[in-house]
Nucleic acid binder design. Structure first.
Lengths: 216, 216, 216, 216
DNA sequence: TATGAATGAGACTTCATTCAT
DNA sequence: AATGAATGAAGTCTCATTCAT
């Protein structure tokens, strides 16, 4: 058996083995670069470099910089919401326990992962990509609000929570997290002592639940 | 004689000397464009157009796009903090009244004005301008936190508030505002019913003060 | 089948990959343009046009206009000096024969080729590029002087030449050539009868050798 | 008598007193800047600054950058030639003494003054200003050559000099000076020991006269 | 499929020139 | 006569995108 044939059996060239993984690798690299630089300042050459391919290859999988950006947003963030919804549906405890759980889950899955960059990106680029923004708003923001609103409502019905405006209270459960998600990264280098996430989450949960609890 | 006719008689000069007014006019126009597009995507031609000058004129007053960006941030936002500090110092009422007042003032002076774009810009461009970010953090963010922390502390000392972590509680008083400032604009077009700021502020103040109040 | 027809059948590609050849083609085109216009007035678009590429392509090979200029000087002139040195080392004849030979070689390789523009460029731009000027001075001017000084010295030792100041005599063997190199091009259009190089070289050699010869 | 009136008598404002001198001051400043930077890279703002006026004022005296450049060349160099011609005409000594005298005069009046920049400028910008170049060639170069040719001819007629090609020998008397004029400035910073002008002139005169002298 | 050389539109920036003051 | 703010044309350089290999 000739050497050429043998090689094609035992050790397929790298790009062939990883063909299927390419789009995901590119999206991961692109997320990093878009988050660091913003859409306009991100260079596709940098994305390609981090994905271990060359510029031309990007265009085999995404038809433009914009398409890549949209893929980054669409493919990375939606699954997290689904996880939250599943959690809420199967959660056995009280409403206040679920509020706390969702807050901590959000931080675990988004706030302290690379996904934290997505909200920042969307805030920054919303005006540039209205269609994507609408998608994000409906599939992430609104869905997240509905999820939390359901929990608040459950708490009010059970008598755990005061009769507050449900939609607004839901937003207020999340907005300190959203802000921290964005601000922590932006100002990381300005806070030599670091940002004490634990204390921040604890205090938010404490104050929020204190504020919403029905004391009769 | 109508203004139009008068103007058409004495031909309007091709340009006017406005040395004193120009920098402020340019900064105002630049704030708009930077907020809409972000630093990298903002075109100086657009800034010039809105300021009523030509591209070249920008360079009489600012030595580069970056310098203009820095001027926008430095010159527009700091005065607001000073106003907040002055308000706190001379405020005659209780701590809870002052918390409410500061929250509403922030919205009146920043949240619903063009300045609302500054926090968004800083979040987006922090990585690109570390020095400016440090300035902003120290002169705006940290100063704002200290201001609110002072109020919380006053409330704890007077027995109005529970003994919470002061620094974190201060951040939590502001973070829903920060988030709303940024998100409201980003998602304006996605909320056909609009964003009910009044209800948002009211509910935040209600929940927050409820949560922090000492019920003994 | 004629070449033209063949080409018109298979449409000529919009561009070709010529990675290896491009830098030299660009340097050649740049030499022309820099010499005609000087550094500041040279337009890269013109360089690109003459090299058969577009502006952007220049930046694949040279990181700035300045870098291109430096490449032009460094890569084109130094080899000539080396040739002169090799010639001197292997020359079998007398010192006076070698002086004549070097003078004529210089004219053949520099004075009447495109390289003649390099000395002119260096004179004009020396103040703008001090580092490059130092390189040129050491690798071209000083080396050339040393080369000729060695020949003069040989002639003095052999008794062919008078005991003149060697370094200065070396410069004086070359300076009429340097001047003619630069002036001939500058004033070409002002001398309808042209510049009789042959007579100029002959007379210089005659006078110079007459002047330096040791008549006992 | 009121103060205003008194001031207008005793101390007329600077610009009034110097009105007549302005063009010359500007030309002097322009010479400096053009020589340092070349025509294209010279900034009129810099010229204005050195002349102690503002940019706009330049246009009261010269209709464009090009016009100013031409004035620099036309007004500064021609007088020197006239001096040389006058010197030759009234010179009482031998031809060889006159050659030496003219060489040394050239250096005194041009080579070591600011005028040394003019030849350099003309070499560099000849292609850009053909008309000016023609003027310069005829009024300076050719006139200079004729002047020296006359001296050579006188020497041949008197038997002092050999029967060389007069026009070429005239050029060769000057070309080492022309080259030194240009090169000395360009490479000033590369020659830490400096350029020994005295030795250069002495050796040139020695070799040249040696070479041209008729030894019977 | 993958590459990366080449393109070309578009941005920032400079500066000669104009003109209101 | 003098100023200097303002203009606008033009140049350098970048980078998303294309396409020959």
């Amino acid at each position: 058996m000739p050497a050429v044939a043998r090689r094609s059996r035992k050790a397929r060239p790298r790009w062939q083995r990883r063909k299927a993984a390419r789009p995901a690798e590119i999206v991961t690299a692109a997320l990093e670069v878009f988050v660091e630089r913003g859409f306009a300042a991100a260079r596709l050459e940098e994305v390609a470099r981090r994905a271990g391919v060359t510029k031309g290859t990007l265009y085999l999988y995404f038809k433009s910089k914009e398409a890549l950006f949209k893929a980054v947003v669409r493919e990375t963030i939606v699954p997290v919401i689904a996880q939250g919804e599943a959690l809420a549906q199967s959660f056995p405890g009280t409403a206040r326990e679920l509020v706390e759980r969702l807050v901590r889950e959000y931080w675990r899955l988004v706030g302290e992962t690379d996904l934290a960059g997505i909200p920042k990106l969307m805030m920054a680029e919303a005006a540039t990509f209205p269609q994507l923004t609408r998608f994000y708003y409906e599939e992430v923001v609104a869905r997240g609000h509905r999820l939390m609103a359901g929990v608040i409502e459950r708490g009010i019905k059970s008598g755990e929570f005061r009769k507050v405006d449900v939609a607004t209270a839901a937003k207020l459960a999340m907005s300190p997290l959203m802000h921290a998600t964005v601000a922590r990264r932006a100002f990381a280098s300005c806070m030599p002592e670091g940002f004490d996430v634990g204390k921040y989450l604890d205090t938010h949960i404490d104050l929020y639940l204190h504020g919403i609890t029905n004391n009769r």
